[in-house]
Design a protein around this nucleic acid. Sequence first.
DNA 1: TAAGTGCGTCGTT
DNA 2: AACGACGCACTTA
Length: 169
Amino acid sequence: MITDIESSNCALPVATPHGEFLAWYSEKGLCALRFPSTAKHSKQTRPVPPKIRRWHAATNAALKSALKGQNGKALPPLDLSAGTEFQRRVWGALLKIARGRTLSYAEVAKAVGKPKAVRAVGGACGANPIPVFVPCHRVVAANERLGGFSGGLDWKRALLKREGIRLPD
DNA sequence: TAAGTGCGTCGTT
DNA sequence: AACGACGCACTTA
């Protein structure tokens, strides 16, 4: 089947109290979520297929809920097919971390059956295309510290705090 | 205790 | 071949 990337992918804004996120959709579902940035978003002119409109409604509700630290509304389908085998294993493990819980990078490495691939897990977290929904912010360093966050550590702190997680000063 | 160094380890580019 | 969102052992002050 021929797939036209230009016509099948689209980006839609999600207005939240913390700024305007940008949600990207493929034919398979939500494929990327970006934190608010100062850059202007190009306006979506092309008509949005009904399927994607439904997904976007789910994204809207789920993101606003998640930013309040509340329990999961239904997520849209997540298209994580762009990742490597290893990355998808890691992202799958992240999806199992319950709200308000955390795992260390080493624990995630064990969970995917590669206990020594600790740094590689960090890399996979950094490559997570759908932050918040794929909760890479719930992965922290073993030394009781925060670890890193590609979206900025302020976001990581805020997300964890809203889930009721105590952080070391 | 706190802060800094060195190195094993492995997926990704 | 080089680089990390790591972890651990081991200095220093």
